[in-house]
Design a protein around this nucleic acid. Structure first.
Length: 458
RNA sequence: GGCUAGGUGGCAGAAUGGUUAUGCAGCGGCCUGCAAAGCCGCGUAUGCCGGUUCGAUUCCGACCCUAGCCUCCA
């Protein structure tokens, strides 16, 4: 049972062991709270939630996921509405929490905010200036990239190429084209904090470095985030933190999740194809969205199409269906299936882990021995729990309402009529009612014990 | 132009130097008044061209194609 993780830093799968035996520190880049979370924001939250659940079975975990609440996008949103940035940040942080909860994402241990870490940010910037890694120019504080030999190691970029290939117009006050902002001046109408370098605000990259240092120390075990953050954000974090900590290794394992595409193309505001979690939650239960996100390996791109959600619901129908008619499994203590664990241990191979779940479901359905069925069901549930799935009551799952359909009462009334028709062997009328219910998204099943119904994925 | 990840059956998506992925969809059977669910069974796949090998989807090389990053971005 050895966990191995693909480390972006070394570009290979490595066996995982924490720096400090028994205790793991993990930091994941959280949201910038300037709008509602979209499905792309949800992927890292779900993926690293699974990793956190797995790690907690073996280690004491300290999991920090920040909220970026100082950012120019927030400033713009606040200016547009004429409200303080705190209001924008509070609103969307709240939305983020609500949506992630709906997806079964557990809260991290620590959720630091940039606005609560100005002192630490300034302290780190001051230290970088003192040690020659940063300089003041034209009211800005900039990181001197040339002072850090390993710059570009994570993203495998050559410093010189970076400079030569720079497409953006270089600000005249920069010493080097690749130098990036640690602190920038704020005009009076912009939010700002008083600092040794004047009233201003921190750059995005330094916020994470300072929060990591304050909560998790100079060297952390795991740093996660989206694929797109490798450059420049994580590269810059490494530069800042390593230099601020006198060369100490910043993060031992770098994990990056792939992007979510929509209908084969990138999600972007200009294309108008940004899928918000809150809208998807109107189409399907959060658990289905979660399963859809875990159906592909976390490092692969995930193409979101109109088929994804209905299919995820049908998969859950199958899994919950296997639990539904089993007696007595809820009370059983069960360990996750070893094969399931092995799949997760292999760099979080969730598609493989899901395959194990489906095999367990089939075994439950196959078995006619009540004790065996209960044991298998308990194992299925215990395994799925590591993925944050199958936590609901099976009967409740099949009753989940997502859109305006028939009420349970209406369904029962129609079923009573159908029962009467069947008793008098008026099958034509009975089938008519069944078709009517089906059209309303109600699927019915006859058995020796009677008729039962459920809401279908459509 | 530089860097990175990919191209697997109708779709989604793992794995593997020779042996069933899994799910959804489809087909046949059992069950059922008929269905549904479930079970049993079936079918179609590894971009293209070379090389290594007894044997390659898997390793190596070339080519074609796709996506991402290089600028704010999960």
């Amino acid at each position: 049972m050895t966990l191995s993780l693909y480390n972006t830093r070394t570009r290979q799968k490595e066996p995982f062991a924490p720096l400090q035996p028994g205790r793991v520190t993990m930091y994941v880049c959280g949201p910038t709270v300037y709008s509602f979370p979209h499905i792309g924001n949800a992927r890292p939250a779900v993926v690293f939630d699974v990793l956190a659940r797995l790690l907690r079975t073996r280690y004491q975990l300290v999991y920090a996921r920040n909220i970026t609440d100082i950012d120019d996008k927030i400033n713009r949103a606040a200016a547009a509405e004429g409200v303080p940035i705190g209001e924008i940040a509070a609103r969307y942080a709240h939305a983020y929490h609500a949506d992630m909860r709906a997806l079964g994402v557990l809260a991290p241990d620590i959720e630091p905010r940039a606005t609560e870490h100005l002192a630490g940010i300034m302290r780190m910037i001051g230290g970088l200036i003192d040690s020659g890694h940063a300089y003041v120019a034209d009211g800005h504080v900039l990181f001197r990239v040339s002072s850090f030999a390993d710059y570009g190691a994570l993203s495998r970029r050559d410093q010189r190429e970076l400079l030569a290939g720079a497409r953006v117009e270089v600000a005249p006050y920069k010493e080097g084209a690749g130098d990036f902002v640690l602190w920038k001046p704020s005009t009076p109408e912009l939010p700002g904090w008083d600092s040794p370098w004047g009233r201003g605000r921190p750059g995005w990259h330094i916020e994470c470095s300072a929060m990591v240092a304050e909560h998790l120390g100079p060297t952390i075990d795991i740093h996660g985030g989206g694929n797109d953050l490798i450059f420049p954000h994580h590269e810059n974090e490494i530069a800042q933190s390593t230099c601020a900590n006198r060369g100490a290794l910043f993060a031992r394992y770098w994990l990056h999740n792939g992007f979510v595409n929509v209908d084969h193309t990138k999600m972007s505001k200009s294309l108008g194809n940004v899928l918000l979690v809150r809208h998807l939650l109107e189409q399907a239960p959060g658990e289905a969205i979660r399963l859809a996100l875990l159906a592909a390996h976390y490092r692969q791109p995930l193409d979101w199409t109109s088929e994804v959600l209905p299919e995820a619901r049908r998969k859950l129908d199958r899994l919950y269906g296997a639990l539904r008619d089993v007696e007595g499994w809820q009370a059983l203590e069960a360990a996750p299936d070893p094969e399931f664990i092995a799949a997760l241990d292999d760099d979080l191979n969730t598609p493989q882990a899901l395959a194990v779940l489906f095999n367990l479901a089939r075994d439950v359905n196959r078995s006619s021995d009540p004790a065996e069925r209960a044991a298998l069901a308990a194992c299925l549930r215990a395994s799925a729990a590591l993925l944050g799935l199958l936590g609901a009551d099976p009967d409740a799952w099949f009753m989940t309402e997502t859109s305006d359909g028939l009420s349970a009462e209406q369904v029962e009334t129609l079923l009573a009529e159908r029962r009467a028709a069947r008793t008098s062997r008026d099958f034509k009328r009975a089938d008519q009612i069944r078709d009517q219910l089906l059209e309303a998204g109600i699927l019915i099943e006859d058995s020796a014990e009677g008729t039962r119904w459920r809401r279908s994925a459509g």
